[in-house]
Design a protein around this nucleic acid. Sequence first.
DNA 1: CCACCTCCGTACGGGACCGTATGGTCCGAC
DNA 2: GTCGGACCATACGGTCCCGTACGGAGGTGG
Lengths: 182, 182
Amino acid sequence: MARRTRDDWTGVALRALAEGGVAAVAVEPLAARLGATKGSAYWHFPNREALLKATLERWEREHTEAVIELVESVSEPLAKLRLLFAKVLENAGHSAVELAVLAAEDDPVVAPVVARVTERRIGYLRELFVLLGFDADVARRRAVLAYSIYLGQAQLLSAAPDVVAARRLLLEETLAVVTSRG
Amino acid sequence: MARRTRDDWTGVALRALAEGGVAAVAVEPLAARLGATKGSAYWHFPNREALLKATLERWEREHTEAVIELVESVSEPLAKLRLLFAKVLENAGHSAVELAVLAAEDDPVVAPVVARVTERRIGYLRELFVLLGFDADVARRRAVLAYSIYLGQAQLLSAAPDVVAARRLLLEETLAVVTSRG
DNA sequence: CCACCTCCGTACGGGACCGTATGGTCCGAC
DNA sequence: GTCGGACCATACGGTCCCGTACGGAGGTGG
């Protein structure tokens, strides 16, 4: 049987994370998925916590920045916002890891990652609202609002998909509301 | 040592749920909290799942309706909305159970409870927006938006409290945005 | 071809939790 | 006062996961 790398482990851990949450990032089940044994895991990582940490950091690195890069591919600020929200409403599987991570925010390994990602995203949104012509402090609050909606929608999408069935209309309503003046 | 009732068990389970999530609703730890043994638990409930189910149903019964009743104590629709959002931003501990339940929405025991609570709350919000003069379909979308913000704020409040530090301003911005006219 | 390092399999002990079996205690009914 | 049922403690076996110890396979440099 072939050798495994660190990335093999964090890769399968990411899939497990999406499906079963932080608790599913467990050495023995993951070893089974990989067709390996714990021996490999404890070679690449000192313990389960280190594996989880590496997995979360990989997610933070790849996933968060990927979305921002995608959004930056268009130039008009409003179009960026639209693309951003469309991305969430698109598919629930997309934000499965997202929700799993958020759900375990009290875990000492997870907390700092969540804090960094949150800060990064709201900061980016703030820039967008400044570009849309809002004052700095208003922009900050709109950013928090927009991100709250993002999180809430993701939750609703997986908890009660029928509620967010009329996606196109909901998307436009979201944009209109969040960019409304005075 | 005194006898325990079903409510003693669901009571301590609710506390555990708020602190450690669904996974913390475990028979043996709860027995320790109660100063009892598993014997008592397996007398009142056939298994752990039944205990969890009873706990969630108690939460659904008491908590969700309690908030709606509180909100109904004022008459003006906008004031109701304000009170509703103020309740979340008030304290994070208040919505700890909320987040714990949401986090485990893929659990077969949890899912139907979440579905019912979601439906109930969005329905109530829809009524509020109708009272505020919105058309039925717009009201429904505003309700979904408002509930998304509610969920997102709760999440942010426990994940990154500093982000939602300016509560008063954020509350007013939320209200203004969510009730803005086309 | 051998010494060595990397990577992994195997085997073990331990902890947390589930669920069952069984016997004991308390308390009201009669 | 004893009998039956409600309630609980104790003790046990089973599962799943963690982490450690150790030896063996495979490639690589000398």
